[in-house]
């Protein structure tokens, strides 16, 4: 019997399912960051708002990257539905803490897919996901660095304003 699955699909079917779930997660992250941008805008934290607008776009790019990988390899990517986005926050610190937790959850999710790739010997997908493994390390580092600023500069008043001004220099910087 011919291997019609392999003829049509370069990746493992179960990996395709997990990647489709990851698409939903990246889309959720993108929307969650947009909600955070809105909160920052309303609280006159312009740099933080810009940070989250950019972050939101990045998550969308991650989503598209996975989306195209599935389709390019013969699978079917599904356009995600997004629900349950939080819009209420107590403080900017809470927002960045939520952002860090969200990134950690995404890292774990990516790692789980990599483990599964190894189990089913899907080297192509594992190689593809390596980019995301690196990306997640950077994302976590950025959020962690910003959270450290709160310890240094405080969470309100002038300290908060000064902290907001430091935000543009954080990503990719020292």
């Amino acid at each position: 019997m011919k291997d019609l699955v392999r003829q049509n699909l370069s990746i493992h079917v179960e990996i395709m399912d997990l990647l489709n779930k990851q698409i939903e997660k990246e889309a959720h992250s993108s929307s969650a960051y947009l909600a955070m941008a809105s909160w920052c805008d309303h609280n006159a934290l312009d740099n933080s708002a810009k940070f989250f607008y950019d972050q939101s776009l990045e998550e969308r790019e991650h989503m598209i990257k996975i989306f195209r990988f599935i389709n390019d390899n013969g699978g079917t990517a599904y356009s995600p539905e997004v629900s349950k986005i939080a819009h209420d926050f107590n403080s900017l610190e809470e927002i960045f803490e939520t952002a860090l937790e969200q990134e950690i959850a995404i890292t774990k999710s990516i790692h789980n897919i990599v483990y599964k790739c190894r189990k089913v010997q899907d080297l192509a997908s594992e190689h593809f996901l390596q980019w995301f493994v690196n990306e997640q390390m950077e994302e976590e580092q950025t959020m962690r660095r910003i959270l450290e600023l709160f310890d240094l500069m405080g969470t309100e008043g002038l300290g908060l304003k000064l902290l907001d001004e430091r935000i543009p220099g954080i990503k990719g910087g020292a």
Binding site: L4, V5, Q7, N8, L9, V13, D17, G74, G75, T76, Y78
Partner: peptide, 14 residues
Amino acid sequence: MSFCQLLSFRQKLL
């Protein structure tokens, strides 16, 4: 069904 259609059928059931 083509493979692609089979995949889509599977997804609908899932």
